[in-house]
Structures are given as C-alpha cells and as structure tokens.
Nucleic acid binder design. Sequence first.
DNA 1: AGTATTTTTTCGAGGCTCGAAAAAAAGAGC
DNA 2: GCTCTTTTTTTCGAGCCTCGAAAAAATACT
Lengths: 413, 413
Amino acid sequence: MSVGIRHDDLRRRNRAMVISAVRRASQPSRTEIAATTGLSHSTISTISSDLISEGILAEAKFSEPVSMKRGRPQVGLMLDADAASVVAVVLSLNSLSAAIIDYAGNTVTEETRRLVTQQMPAEALVDECVGMVRRLIDSAGASGGAVLRIAIAVQGITDAASRKLLWSPITRYDDIPFADRLEQEFGVPVSVENDCNMIAEALRWRDPVRYRDDFIAILLSHGIGMGLVIKGELFTGTQSSGAEFGHMIHRPDGALCRCGRRGCIEAYAGNYAIWRNARVGDENAEPLADLSDDDIRAVADAARDHDGPEREAFRKAGEAIGFGLGSMFALFDPAPLAFVGVGATAFDIMEPHVRAAIAKTAGGLHSKAISFDTEPNEVPLKREGAMMRALLAVDQEIFAAGTAPRRAGADVA
Amino acid sequence: MSVGIRHDDLRRRNRAMVISAVRRASQPSRTEIAATTGLSHSTISTISSDLISEGILAEAKFSEPVSMKRGRPQVGLMLDADAASVVAVVLSLNSLSAAIIDYAGNTVTEETRRLVTQQMPAEALVDECVGMVRRLIDSAGASGGAVLRIAIAVQGITDAASRKLLWSPITRYDDIPFADRLEQEFGVPVSVENDCNMIAEALRWRDPVRYRDDFIAILLSHGIGMGLVIKGELFTGTQSSGAEFGHMIHRPDGALCRCGRRGCIEAYAGNYAIWRNARVGDENAEPLADLSDDDIRAVADAARDHDGPEREAFRKAGEAIGFGLGSMFALFDPAPLAFVGVGATAFDIMEPHVRAAIAKTAGGLHSKAISFDTEPNEVPLKREGAMMRALLAVDQEIFAAGTAPRRAGADVA
DNA sequence: AGTATTTTTTCGAGGCTCGAAAAAAAGAGC
DNA sequence: GCTCTTTTTTTCGAGCCTCGAAAAAATACT
C-alpha cells in the first residue's frame, strides 16, 4: 500500500512546502514561511537559498516597507516569473482558447477562436489544440521560461488519470486521447481536466477564505456541471473526473435528459430544460442542441416580470438543484456554494426554490446557513483553474524534486 | 496549511509503516516488509529490532517452514499480543455489547446485554457503557497489555471528530458526549464511530482483495445505513460521520420517512417501509418503531412465493436503492457493494430491481460489472470494525511515536 | 564437511533538520 | 553621528535517519 518515506523524499517534500507557501502567500518572508510550515528557520534558509540559486524563487526587490518596525527588515520571496511557463487550454462547445502563462501566473500571450466542435472529427479537434498551442509557443519566442506543462480544461467527462476525454457534449466522439497526442507533439506532460473541476480550483485561489477546504462550484449552463472540493482536495471519481451532479436522478423516469436517460437534474435545470419547460411545455421534447445566452436571459426576464410557464420552469429548476444538493449533503454535510455561468444571472429567481427544497432534505437543518454566491462569467475561471493546475504540477513534480540536485547544483556553483 | 516534515516525523512514519505492514500481512519477514514498504533492509532491521525491544512486535517462533528454499530461513514478525489491548463497544437499538481485544486482535473477554435504549435517559445510556467496560476491564484483570483505546460503534450520526453521538434512532436525545465521559472515566482516548463506517472498516480487513480502495457497505435493517470507502479512505462528512445514504431523496415529497421528512430512500427500502408497503399499503402511514427479523423474513417469503403487495414492496425498495446508487455513481463512479444485515437475506428479491434502476442512471454503463455481495449478520462486523479502528489508532498514534524513544529505550537497555 | 544461497545485522558515509550563536540590517535614543 | 536595541537571516556543529556494501548467520545442497 502506501510506501515508506525515503531519506531523499524529505527534502523534496519540504522544498514543495516552501514553494507552495510562496505561491499561496504574497511575497512571504523566510520567517513567515518558517511559521506556516512549522520548519525551523535554518531549514527554510537553506531551502530558499537553494531555490533562489536554481532560479525558481527570487527576492522581492522593493517590497513595501510595511514593517515600520525596528530590526532587520523582512525580505519577501516571490516566484521567479522566468523559471518556467505553462499553457492553459480551454475547450468548450464551439470555442477554443489557450494562453501561455509564466511561472508567476501572468498571462504572456493568448488566443481564442470559434469552432463548430460538434461537427468536427475527433482528430480535427486535437489538431486545432495542437495548432493553437504551437502558434502561441512560437509567438512567445524565447521570452520567459520553457513551457513545462500543459493543462486542458474541457467540458465533459475525463478519465481519472487526466489523459483522455471520455465523453463530452461538444463532440460526438468518445475516448479522445488529448494528452497522448499533445505530449507527443510538445514533449511535456499534459493533463486533461474537467472544466468544472478547474472552476473549483480557480475559486480556491481567487477567494481562499470563502473557498478553502469544503465547497461546491456548480456550472449552470446548457448542462449542469460540478466541481467539488472536500477536505481540501478536489473530489474526483475513481475512474472518471466525477461529480456529475447534473446526472444525479431527481425524478425516477422523469423528464428527458440530453444524455438520453430520464429524470436527471440537468433535465430540469439545464438551460435547455428551462427553455423547454417555459416555451415548449413538454418535458419529454427532444432537447435543443444549443441555446444562446440571450435566449435564456429572455426567459429569466419573463419569469421576473410575471407569473407563468417561465416562472414555473425556474421553480422546477431550483427544486431539482435543491433536492440534488440535499441528497449530496446527506453524504458529506453542507458546504458553501458558488453558482457559475449564464444560469447564475437568473439564480435570484431559483434561489427560494433551491432553499425550499434543501429544507425538505437531510441538509435542511443548516439550510439557512449555506452560503450561495454567483459568478456569471465562467470562461476566465476555467482558464485560471487550468493555469493553477499546470503551475502546481510544475511546483510539485519538477521544481520540488530539484532537477539533478547534485549535478545541476555543482554546475551553478 | 499542511505542515512540513520534521526530522523526527520521519522515524515515526516509517515505524508506522512497519507496524502496519505486520498487521496487514500474516507474519511477514523483514525482507517482505522491506519489499512492501520500499525501505531498505537495514532500515527495516533497525526499526523492527527497536519495536521488538519495546515489546510491540515479536518474532514468530514456529513459522511453518514453507520455504523449502536454500539459505537462511525468513523469520516472521508478529504483533505482540500483550503489547496493549483495546475495548470495542457496539451500541445498537436495544442492545449493548463490548469486548476486550488484545493487540494481536484476539478477543479476551466480552459481554452483551439487552437494553430498552429508546426509553433510557441519555445519562443512563452512557452509564451502561461505562459499567460494561468497567466490568470487562476488571474481569480481564492484569492479564495482557493495558487498555490504551476504546472505540464505540453506534447506530446514528456522530460528529466528524468522533466524540459525540449527534443523532440516533436508538434514543430520543441528541448530542450525547460519549467520548468525553468515557475518557474521563478510563483515562484513555475514546472515539465514537458510526456503525456502518465500522462495517466498512471490518470488510476491508476480512477481504482485502475484494474490498480494497473503493467499495460501499450498505446496512439493510430497520433503517438504511452506509459505510463508504473511496480511494482507500473511509469517507466521512465534514462535520458528521456522513454517508447517510438512507436519507438521500428518492422521490421528492414522497413516502413518509422515520426522520419526519419525505421521499428518503429509507422510506422505501428500510424494513419498516417494506413492511408498510406490504402490509399497510399506505406509504404515508406512521413508521413502526421496531420490527423483528422474523417479521421481515415473513414478508420476504411471501414475496418469493407469489405476486402481490409483498413483491411490489421489495420492488419499490430495490428501485429506491438502485436509483440512489445511480445518483452516487454519478458523483464518484461505480464500486463493489456489500449488503449487510437482515435485509440482505431478502436481497435476492430486490437485486433485479436494483440493477434495473442503476441501468437507468449514469452508473448504468457498468451496471453489469458492479459486484453485489451479501452478509446477513452485521453484529460481528460492527465489532471487528470498532476493534480495528481502535487497534490502528494504537498503532499509529502511540506505538509509531515510540513512547519516549530515548528514555524508555535506555531503561530497557 | 564444505559450498551455495538467502536472510539479517553491522558499519561507515552522506544527508537532512535543528538549535544556538553569529552576522546583518534596520530604527531608536542620546 | 554614533551606539544600542530589535528583528531577520545565515552559519555551524550536533544528532538522527536512511542507505549501500560488506559481514554474519542460518539453512539446503553436494
């Protein structure tokens, strides 16, 4: 099972701790790092001077002299932006975008283009990714650090090893091996991640106070996605990316879902379902393939304006989400929620029904205490999440190990 | 956040690895331990001779000479039964039992008695536990190692810190602080655990091949309980023991549940629900407080014998369980299942309906591959689970640390 | 009885972290 | 302007820990 700790793991782990402390805090001093990691000052001193000489960290030159205290001033440590760079790719329905990001997290170059993903062969999808990444790397030229990692946030179900796109609403094809192809093309590790998991990862970095150890991100768009952080870790399935909240069953044998099954939460709360209930009035009608943001906003406006099928459609959506959350809360207790995507703009209409449904479930005891937050624009979140995923991999897997700690160190000295 | 690895943690962790390897395997040799832990032979040699001199491990005297190989024969290591002992307490509806178990896992003494738990004040429940543990410790006398840990498996929801019984069907009272009282009484750490979690823990030790990293134990009795192991760890809630499968929502605003809410899985699949559907025919009728095993077996026999309300009741139960599992599998992919308790004797009637329901959900793709296993007798499983929980705590928290590694070691030498 | 083989222990080397002390870098006080 | 105080950072020696190699131990084979 779990393996013993070798002597050389010790350094690797503690280097990882230091890098992680610097990435998390803003220019922490060595003393602060010692405090947060619990390691001694001398250890932090040794490790950080190693990392600086390897070009991974740098001392902040003009740290604002916040101190105004006596004594030697603290000198902040920061990530050396030129230590490396990563590529964050976001692939969604009819849209592909990518960016090169330096080691400190600044965007170097980016590109976005529209594609008709549902009508492209699987090969072509991968080719588009490869092409865009290639162009970005070429345009960035020799500036900054070498690209050490690529992360792709993609709508759909990925495998647990983050290598393939198992299934996605953006294409008719299954099992598309994005990672293998891109690794072969660029010679760096590639991971393929579910977009909602990346949204959760991004929220954690945007607001570490609210979204710390346990929270839930729900993407309300054409379908319903979820990113789940439990006990400080992204919750993924054992074989897939997991957390397919949209396909939990709300009503057995109920409304027709885009996935072909019946009664899924998505079949009540996805944009297509809300539109169908509001405008078609038949929950068994074939789901629309796509729906513009304006379409759904129009339904929301109508629902706000007067009672009628639109308002009823949002009631059903809120109810489905609420009962689904209630079932989840039976499994692992309530947690703060973030609603992301176009649907979040209409969340005000759904919220009372979500709360009413949760109140009827095991999560009901705390239903008033559960915090809801909305963020309409999911695109930057997906990119930030993929970026953080890639950067953290560089931190932990490459820089913590210390590329040839003896040989490279000797070269430098 | 996570804290750095201090120099002394290293030894503690590797000692823990060795102890754990010995507990898991049956009399492994030092060489085998080195292989499974990945540590060097010299390290294993040092650590194991320390552990032997501290009286935690012992060399097996007459290990069957399975080898028949040339060379120095391997000498198996085993846990020293006298190193310590633990108490495993199982508290269920109308029944309390406890046992003293030595460090090697052998039962030293045990006692069981019937109580009318629902009519006892909270204090009296705790008093009964204290009294029984006291009698056991007294009767065991000075034989064996000192009691270093107590674990209580109790039906109901416990808090995440395993200290209190938050809610339980066995009593009208909430927030009963079992751990505090018992610790005060016996001066050793006490943990209060959900009984189904202990069932899962026990299954892992009974059949480590089938129940390894991901599996689900479902207790089919008056209510429905669940113990969940995901990625090698017992899955608990963030604030409570979690995995309240029985109170996931099967049908919004559906049948009346024992918990007062509506539509819970338990309200269709708990013994009282099956009995109610079979014999009362009104899913809103007030649930019975208790039901004998014979009652439910009679319904099962009737269902097997002829079509009618009994068979229909089991169909509804299987359907509720199947859809609930399907919803869970949307979150974390399918896993092997063990059905435990009286209800498991009737599982043959439910199985086709469980599978049919799962097939209608996101878990349906693999519905045929999901393995079902039944074990009617839950009582020994609860005890074994509590025992393992307590023993592992002694392993990891007490013996791995090495009580005063310098001073005690010096005393021995 | 001697040799081959496998397991276990011993021993020295190298690495890592730690605590204490020293060095560095500022503000405070006169 | 100089010294003292305070705080941060580095340096240095000590103590552990793990590792690899070699030695020792224990058995089967010839």
